Computed example of a mutant assay.
Amino acid sequence: MARRTKRLWTDEEKRSICFQTAAPGVSVAQVARRYAVNANLIFKWLRDPRFAPDPASVPASSEEARFLPVEIVAEEQAPAAAPVAENRIEIELAGGHLSAIRTFAPVGSPDIGPRGPTGSPRKSCGTPRKEKTSGPAPARCHA
């Protein structure tokens, strides 16, 4: 196994590495990988006033917080949507399975509501609705 030797950095190298961390969009981790150094060591150098970059020498960030112009305009009213009614058709299948189909249409449409398309009340066979059963579906109307 190779023996590790402690790497010694000059004060100028430390200042140079710390200065690179102050560039906009550059992280300490990126600089640490560039020099094969642990990021904690660079953070330690940054706390030392001898190596910390001078704020006046750091290039200004182009992504500074700034105000943007805003224009307030009147809100346009969208046309009100017509109310929608839901129709549901249930079909009882063999084996007691229930298949449901839902449709949506605007209220006032000829085939929506308690009356059929002709305006007469919808007809029902009069057979009460049954819950799911395990046997075959009865051949009766359940409207």
Rank of each mutant, 00 (worst) to 15 (best):
F19V: 08
S57W: 10
R34Q: 10
R115D: 05
S134R: 11
P117D: 01
P79H: 05
S62R: 10
W9N: 01
R115I: 08
P59V: 04
E86K: 11
P55D: 04
T21R: 00
L68V: 07
I17S: 00
E63G: 09
C125G: 12
V84C: 06
A32E: 01
I101Q: 11
T127W: 15
I89T: 10
G113F: 00
G116S: 07
A139L: 15
S62C: 11
P138D: 07
T21A: 01
V70G: 05
E12I: 06
W45M: 00
I17A: 00
F51A: 00
F43G: 08
L8F: 09
R102K: 14
P121Y: 01
A56I: 02
C141P: 04
R34V: 07
A65E: 11
A137N: 03
S61I: 13
R7C: 06
F104Q: 15
P59K: 04
Q20E: 15
A32Y: 00
E92W: 03
I112T: 07
P83G: 06
K123Y: 08
C125I: 05
T21V: 05
A137L: 02
T127Y: 13
A32W: 00
S120P: 05
E90Q: 12
P83E: 06
S120A: 13
R115K: 09
E75A: 14
N40V: 08
A85Q: 00
D48N: 13
A29D: 13
R4T: 14
